[in-house]
Amino acid sequence: MDDELDPLQVELDIEAGIQNAIDRCVKEYATPATSPETGGLHLRHPEGTAEVMLDAASAAKQARQVLDSPWAVYQAEDAETTLAVALDLLLTAQELVGDVLDRVVEARHRGDIRDSDGLTHALHTGRRAAVQMYRGGRHELGLVVEALAHTARHYPGRLPRDSHETVAAAAAALGDSARVDDEHHDETADATQVSCGCTLVLDVDGQTWYVSWNDEWAAVLDTGCTDSYVLTEGVDFVELAILPLSVHPHQMVEAIRRHIPSTTATR
């Protein structure tokens, strides 16, 4: 997955996409009221059902794209949460299949779907398969979630807690070509939320690059020009496309090496 695909933004996009699909289906296919017991939609046409299902499938595929990145999970706590959500999606998928089969049975009882021995057998085996789909890995994966939770509690990882630690850790990983320019502009600022003002300075092939945080991490080449000089994206200004302020230092090193290839780093 490209660095530009930010997990948080994708999650927000997925939620927005599903909500937009629901809003559209309410307007086009649903009755004005929702169920007071469940808040569920009373879709009045199969097209609405199909649209919601297709959007949900698309959202699930987007979630898989997020997990393509080796940086989708940093520590045990992240993995525990992510796997627990995946298990919840698995349960939802099993219940969803069961609900669809229930609707098939109801349509058959109404006479809208012609009955046959083959259909009756298929419904029974389909329902059993849906249950087994979830039960098959639920216990084993549940043990993994528990183990990750235990690890997170008793063996917490050690990652940068703020912008200064992020810069310092990345500089250490980059070796002799990097140093930290300590310039705390506001000692009272919360460095977990905003940059402390320090900069990662890189000396590469006779050039000097400055890596700092301004809503996102970016690298700027020291051109020696005046303030009126306009920086060119991809030439003397590079957005590293990694958003967390306390990003994993090796993730920052990886991004720097991608955009400034002459930089050397050790893991």
Rank of each mutant, 00 (worst) to 15 (best):
K61Q: 13
L101G: 01
G40Q: 07
T34N: 06
A59G: 03
T151G: 10
T38F: 08
A59K: 06
A57N: 11
T38H: 04
H45R: 01
T92P: 00
L43H: 03
L91R: 15
H150E: 15
E51A: 08
H45T: 02
T125V: 05
T81E: 09
V105A: 12
T120V: 14
Y155N: 15
D68K: 11
S35H: 04
V105N: 01
D117L: 11
S116V: 02
G137I: 14
H150P: 01
R64K: 10
T125P: 00
G98E: 00
L123V: 02
A50S: 07
A84C: 02
G136C: 08
D88G: 14
R138Y: 08
A56S: 14
A60S: 06
Q75M: 07
L90P: 01
T151V: 07
L159S: 05
G136W: 04
L90T: 15
R64Y: 07
G40E: 12
H154P: 00
M53P: 01
H139M: 10
K61F: 07
L83T: 02
D112L: 12
G126N: 00
G98P: 00
A147R: 11
E37A: 13
H154Q: 13
V145F: 04
V144F: 02
L141V: 10
D68E: 13
L143Q: 15
D115G: 12
M53E: 06
E80P: 03
T82D: 11
G40V: 04
R135Q: 14
A33M: 05
R128K: 13
V104T: 04
A147Q: 10
T49L: 09
A122Y: 00
H154R: 09
R127Y: 02
G136A: 13
Q65W: 03
L123R: 01
D88N: 07
M133D: 08
V52C: 07
A72V: 12
D162M: 04
Y155S: 06
L101P: 00
T151M: 06
E95N: 15
A130G: 01
G142V: 01
Q94R: 13
E37Y: 15
G98R: 00
L41T: 08
Q132C: 05
T82L: 11
A84K: 10
R44F: 08
A149L: 11
M53Q: 07
K61T: 09
L96Q: 04
W71F: 15
A147S: 06
D78G: 01
T49N: 09
A56G: 11
G111P: 07
T125L: 09
L91D: 14
D99V: 05
H139R: 15
Q132F: 12
A59N: 02
D102E: 14
